[in-house]
């Protein structure tokens, strides 16, 4: 296994592991803010997977100047650029709704929130 292959697949394994850990946290944690944190982790992992899908080793960043001949795919990066900013706005909404729900039920525990039960 060459260094290039290890570089490429270690990035993919990190991103997939982050998504898996985030989904596990969303499913099993009990505090509403902890669930929001796990959601943010899964969001970061999905962004990593999207950028990885356009990544080719041994190429340069997609900013053309005289020293660059081959670049990576710019299209997934452009998608992720907006996805990050929208992700933080959605996290803000998540936190506000979570705070309101915890005020209504008197606790941050999702087991006591009838609306959020599963």
């Amino acid at each position: 296994m060459t260094a290039e292959t290890m570089f490429y697949w270690s990035l993919a394994a990190t991103a997939l592991g982050l998504v898996v850990i985030g989904i596990w946290g969303v499913l099993t944690r009990k505090n509403i803010l902890r669930i929001a944190l796990a959601f943010t982790l899964a969001d970061t992992g999905v962004n990593l997977i999207l950028v990885w899908s356009g990544f080719l080793p041994n190429r340069a960043a997609p900013i053309i100047d005289s020293s660059v001949t081959t670049v990576v795919d710019p299209l997934p990066q452009a998608l992720v650029l907006t996805s990050i900013v929208i992700g933080v706005a959605v996290a803000a909404l998540f936190v506000v709704v979570g705070v309101l729900a915890s005020r209504k039920s008197g606790s941050a525990d999702v087991r006591r929130m009838k609306e959020l039960r599963w």
Binding site: L11, L33, A36, L37, T40, T44, N47, V51, W52, F55, R59, A60, A61, P62, I63, V71, V72, Q77, V80, L81, I84, V85, V88, A91, A92, V95
Partner: peptide
């Protein structure tokens, strides 16, 4: 490391202060 400096700069500017303050 994945040759995406634009995405790195966005993640840095969002993750450093803004998302921490929200939580």
């Amino acid at each position: 490391l994945m040759d995406a400096p634009d995405v790195a700069i966005t993640e840095a500017s969002i993750g450093a202060a803004i998302s921490t303050v929200i939580f």
